[in-house]
Simulated assay, not measured.
Amino acid sequence: MITLLVILGIVVVLIAMAVGYKNKFVVLDNSVKNAWSQIDVQLENRFNLIPNFVETVKGYAKHEKETFDGIARARSNFKNATTPEAKMEANNQLSGFLGRLFAVSEAYPELKANTSFENLQNQLVELENKIRFARQFYNDTVTEYNQNIQMFPASIFAGIFNYRLAELFKADDIARVTPQVRF
């Protein structure tokens, strides 16, 4: 009888642990999804602002076709992306081309004096700051999630419930390259 009570006690404890960990994983997973949606909203705003910015610059820097085409490709890739990873990649591509575009604008004083350009540039800078903050929050949330599903004994339950590591938002090689302006 005591053996049966001990076994029953162990089963109850394991079930309670499983329920506790499952609930914790759900909360953490939802936090990661929420953090990603904050980035997604800001990236969408950024990608929607880009065509106006590009059109303003095109009038002054007609020879920057490669940059304009790259921005259009990155925007298209973002619109067609179905996963956070694909959207991160499109964002990184756009960041590289925007860096070039900002560098090009430095060579055109009359463009920098254009109020439409200045307004669009200020909006982009503000969005970039929001995106940076959202990325930091997302990476902090993902780190907490990943740590929780990797630590013992939570890792056992994470495997049972099929929770996998989430990917951090990282800059890629394009975003790390310093833009070069050639005339």
Rank of each mutant, 00 (worst) to 15 (best):
I71N: 08
N129P: 10
F157H: 03
L101P: 05
F102I: 09
A86N: 04
V142H: 04
L111C: 05
E64N: 03
N52D: 06
A81G: 07
F68P: 11
S76D: 08
V27A: 14
T67P: 15
R100T: 12
S37T: 11
E144V: 11
L124A: 00
V104I: 14
M1S: 12
S76F: 04
F152C: 08
N34W: 03
G70I: 07
M1F: 12
L5P: 03
F183V: 14
N146K: 04
Y163W: 05
A166S: 15
T82I: 12
N148G: 09
E167W: 11
S95W: 08
V27Y: 10
E106W: 02
E118H: 05
N129R: 10
A154M: 09
T67Q: 08
F117Q: 04
F78H: 00
T178G: 11
A107Q: 15
A90C: 05
V104C: 12
D40W: 00
V41A: 02
K62D: 05
I7R: 01
Q123E: 09
D29M: 07
E106R: 05
E144Q: 14
K33T: 12
D40P: 01
V19W: 01
N52W: 04
V142T: 03
R164I: 14
N45H: 04
R75H: 01
T82H: 15
K130M: 05
F161D: 04
R100F: 15
V13R: 02
Q147E: 14
G20T: 02
A86M: 05
K87C: 11
A35C: 03
R73M: 15
L4D: 08
N119S: 10
A35P: 06
T178D: 15
N162K: 14
N114L: 01
F183P: 14
R73L: 14
N92A: 10
F152I: 09
N119L: 05
P84E: 06
E128N: 06
Q136L: 09
D140R: 10
I2G: 12
V27L: 13
E55H: 10
F133D: 07
Y145C: 11
N45Y: 00
T141M: 13
V13Q: 04
L8P: 02
V19C: 05
F78A: 01
T141W: 11
K62F: 05
A81P: 07
K24F: 09
N129H: 15
V12H: 03
E126V: 00
I149C: 07
